[in-house]
Design a binder for these strands. Structure first.
Ligand SMILES: [Mn+2]
Ligand SMILES: [Mn+2]
Ligand SMILES: [Mn+2]
Ligand SMILES: [Mn+2]
Lengths: 221, 221
DNA sequence: AATAATTTTTAGATTAGCCTAAAATTATTT
DNA sequence: AAATAATTTTAGGCTAATCTAAAAATTATT
């Protein structure tokens, strides 16, 4: 099977090429995985030998179908474990990522399928990210940024762009958690601060940086 | 923190010195961990440098308190994960060990404590082995081998000595699982085959090798 | 006590994964 | 089109964990 490092590289490359089907370059992998470009070159040679990606010197890499499959399996494991940690063990949504980063490398397809079943075949992880199915299919949700909503429009918080602990804690503190309905009341003309109306009738003021990192499912009323 | 390999060595040494407080010798570690003596020598030097064990050339090793602590923590994790896999994910008792062998190395004390709580603070794993507490304390149960029982005596199956999959499956097939009450009906004088009476009134015949590997809690009737 | 057998250690390699520094290539400015 | 900047690769080294084969130490046998 594949090593932790190999799986981490595949996952990182997968996420980099996910929303832009260009070749992924060495430096961007290095940045995303917090390592040096020279290390990346070493590793992508190995992954290329193992037919997990296509590599042309100085031209970046592209995952093969096999590489993509392993990457998606790793994402599936990661998100299922995050769901377990959050739903069953009651970890806060900003605490699950680092532990899942370890758990995602446990080798056993039986384990992950039983975990999936135990969790009731969840479709999204605690951050609203879709959980790939056994078959590798990922159902893309059509969420939009809360910053895209016009004054008067409403949406249900369904995901986050920024996954950092400090951001997630900030949302939690403001009651902006998954499933909460929010309506845009006012957008400050000068500083773009956004006034949000919660379903509790409570009104809160958040920065533009916050609404740019929240994904909502639009509610037509 | 400690590497997977280091934790595995500590656990192996711990189990070897557990029931005999002599120094543990190089070859026995090599055998138990399925590696070569030269590799063991390399590793015990490292563990000695890290104050996890006391090592004297040609004289074997003894865990320090620190080494013992890490070993017990690893055993705790292993058995809690086995319990999770068995109780929650419904893995058979012969399927949990190999996966727990991986899970025991996940680094997060918060995780293991929450798992412990989630499982209801179990005292024994699916094979009847005691689960060390947070504090490292292991409650030793006074189980005896089923082979020690005389004709007429009864006991509740509470553990196994042999943990191999083939043995565990054999027990399962014969209904000899944890918690089952058995009474020794007859011991064959010629071949030592043992006739056991189950609480279902069913009577089964098992080999001496089987009863020598089952631990029971004696029932005084 | 000497010899033989066994155990343990050392010496020297190997592989995975990472690093720094220098060289090579590609991209961007002048 | 040169020159300069940025990116990428190569070269050489390092650590962890393993191995084989040989040497050294210990233990058992004659
Ligand atoms: Mn995550
Ligand atoms: Mn990872
Ligand atoms: Mn086990
Ligand atoms: Mn292990």
């Amino acid at each position: 099977m594949y090593s932790f490092a190999e799986e981490n590289y595949l996952k990182a490359i997968y996420k980099l090429q996910e929303h832009s089907d260009l070749a992924v370059n060495t430096n961007s992998i290095a940045t995303s995985i917090q390592t040096k470009a020279a290390s990346v070159t070493d590793m992508i040679k190995k992954l290329s030998d193992k037919k997990l990606l296509k590599y042309e010197k100085y031209k970046g890499v592209e995952l093969t179908n096999l590489g993509k499959k392993i990457a998606i399996e790793t994402v599936r494991k990661h998100r299922l474990w995050e769901t377990f940690l959050h739903d069953k063990l009651k970890f806060a949504w900003d605490e699950v990522h680092d532990i899942a980063e370890q758990l995602e490398h446990i080798k056993s397809s039986e384990l992950i399928d039983k975990l999936d079943e135990y969790l009731g075949f969840p479709t999204h992880d605690p951050h609203g990210d879709p959980i790939p199915g056994r078959n590798g299919v990922i159902i893309q949700s059509n969420f939009v940024l809360l910053s895209e909503l016009k004054v008067g429009e409403s949406g249900v918080i369904s995901g986050v762009v920024n996954h950092s602990s400090v951001f997630l804690k900030h949302l939690e503190k403001n009651g902006l958690t998954l499933g909460k309905k929010v309506q845009v009341k006012e957008i400050g003309e000068f500083d773009q601060l956004v006034q949000l109306l919660l379903s509790t009738k409570e009104s809160i003021l958040v920065s533009n940086e916050v609404v740019k990192n929240i994904l909502v499912k639009i509610q037509y009323s």
